[in-house]
Nucleic acid binder design. Structure first.
Length: 174
DNA sequence: GGGAGGATGGAT
DNA sequence: TCCATCCTCCCA
């Protein structure tokens, strides 16, 4: 039986490390009918702080990014390209804006597809990741480095050569 | 109030 | 390579 990962698990300032460690953990969703779906996280990206030009919060504190400045372990869900909901977990201490984008889980490739398949949308935005909110995380095996690939993040070329090239994306090797 | 552009994905 | 589709944010 998996243990629930409490929100405070993610208040470390080392968001990049947390993104790496989230691989292999379980994302759990309770559907409307009470059934719980559990999927293994296979791809993540770190968005780390006010200096990270790919991080939404680097453009300042706004209504949308406010949640990233709050306590760790809350969901940041936003709409991109007018149609895809992106699921992120807020990390870091209070007032340090950072988050981890959950890009894929086992059997579902792509951040837009996974939210659609699991029924995750902006209703979850700002909610703490706990079972009472029907969307939470559970522990799983730690993956050895040999099973993990680090690459630059997807679709953030606008962030400039430094930030767009950093190996902040983590993928479980097949 | 207007307009540009986006942490995607599916079709062409 | 194109583009659907709409929210966010900046500018006026």
């Amino acid at each position: 039986m998996s243990r629930v990962l409490r929100p405070e698990t993610f208040n470390s300032r080392q968001t990049v490390r947390l993104a790496r460690e989230l691989l292999g953990k379980t994302l759990a969703v309770e559907q409307e009918n009470g059934k719980v779906s559990r999927v293994r996280i296979t791809e993540t990206e770190a968005y780390d702080g006010p200096d990270d030009l790919a991080c939404h919060a680097s453009k300042g504190r706004t209504a949308r990014t406010e949640v990233m400045f709050g306590p760790a372990g809350r969901w940041y869900v936003y709409l991109i390209y007018g149609m895809h909901e992106m699921l992120n977990l807020v990390t870091g201490p209070q007032d340090y804006p950072a988050a981890i984008l959950i890009r894929a889980v086992e059997g579902i490739s792509g951040p837009g597809r996974l939210t659609k398949r699991l029924g995750v949308d902006r209703r979850f935005n700002t909610l703490p990741a706990v079972p009472e909110n029907a969307l939470w995380l559970e522990s799983g095996p730690s993956l050895p480095d040999a099973h993990v690939e680090a690459t630059p993040r997807v679709g953030v070329g606008y962030a400039g050569p430094d930030w767009s090239q950093r190996p902040y994306r983590f993928v479980v090797k097949k």
